[in-house]
């Protein structure tokens, strides 16, 4: 049985189509990343899959249950960590974890054990009795993430779980996500961090303007824009006019670019770096820095959408 099946899933808010007839499947035990810029529709997809808002059109099947017809059955199978911090602000850290555990019917002994373990893992032991509203934003986010791992649902939805976390907590969260998958959970992870998607996800769906414009394994997505290298050139002056000229070179496969330079995809950096640099200099470009790298998900995104993710 599939973990998730989206069938023409659509959400409109008035005249705005936030999610536009998306179709995808997620296998059990898989970590699927939803990658896209802010406003792409990732959170709306998660809100529909977790039964918080109903779809305008189409539906989704979660472990055999329709999100519209059997929302209660769906909710028994899932766990959710929302993008925005959802905590009892006038209650202490311990109460927040305990109440969440009770709502998920975790027996008292197990609940206490898990709370102590999570407080320790996320460095919250000394804050256990502190009221949430007195904690910094980063600490509140840690409590929110810890809450997500209080119980063991079949499918865990994490909406930008590491946004606002310090590097140490971020790595800890990654470990928890990987452990969850190892223990048999399916994880849906919404993020706009490329490294997070590359590091954690079995497959990544690239979301833009409410549509899934690509969905595959990370390496397959990278291969989809062709093999080769990326040469990043930081160029002074008006380099934008160079773009079309460079694209015409036979060893160039594609050109993307930021405000401060160009990202040029070539068949081989070893064979084309010197020639390309000379070509730019001859046309009046003043090269400040040059670096060579393998294509990333960001390049895939730029190639598919024509713009950067942020």
């Amino acid at each position: 049985m599939l973990a998730i099946e989206c069938i023409n899933l659509t959400k409109r808010f008035g005249g705005l189509t936030a999610v536009d007839h998306i179709n995808f499947e997620v296998k059990r035990n898989e970590i699927l990343g939803l990658l896209g810029p802010n406003g792409a529709g990732k959170t709306t997809i998660i809100r529909m899959l977790t039964t918080v808002i109903p779809p305008t059109e189409g539906t989704a099947i979660i472990l055999g249950f329709d999100v519209q017809k059997e929302p209660t059955k769906v909710k028994e199978k899932i766990g959710v960590m929302l993008q925005n911090t959802a905590l009892e602000r006038f209650s202490p850290v311990y109460d927040n974890l305990d109440i969440y555990g009770r709502i998920h019917n975790i027996p008292r002994k197990e609940r206490k054990r898990r709370i102590e373990w999570l407080l320790s893992e996320f460095g919250l032991e000394e804050k256990r009795n502190e009221t949430i509203r007195l904690l910094s934003g980063g600490l509140q986010k840690r409590v929110q993430v810890a809450k997500a791992f209080m119980h063991h649902p079949d499918i865990l939805f994490l909406d930008e779980p590491t946004l606002g976390l310090d590097p140490q907590s971020r790595l800890k969260t990654w470990d928890f996500i990987k452990d969850s998958s190892r223990e048999g959970q399916t994880v849906i992870l919404s993020t706009n961090y490329m490294d997070e998607a590359e590091h954690l996800c079995d497959r990544v769906g690239i979301i833009d303007h409410g549509r899934v414009i690509a969905l595959d394994r990370v390496e397959a997505l990278k291969d989809s824009i062709g093999s080769g290298d990326i040469i990043d050139m930081n160029i002074e002056g008006d380099f934008k006019s160079l773009r079309s000229d460079i694209l015409g070179l036979d060893y160039v496969k594609g050109v993307g670019g930021e405000a401060s330079g160009l990202s040029i995809q070539v068949k081989s950096a070893d064979e084309s770096l010197v020639a390309l640099s000379q070509y730019v200099v001859e046309r009046g470009g003043r090269i400040k820095t040059v670096s060579v790298r393998r294509p990333t998900l960001e390049d895939v995104f730029i190639r598919l959408t024509g713009r950067t993710i942020r």
Binding site: R47, K75, E76, V80, L82, A86, I103, N105
Partner: peptide
């Protein structure tokens, strides 16, 4: 929003 995604 969180509570409505819980089994309640």
């Amino acid at each position: 929003e969180e509570l409505l995604s819980c089994p309640v």
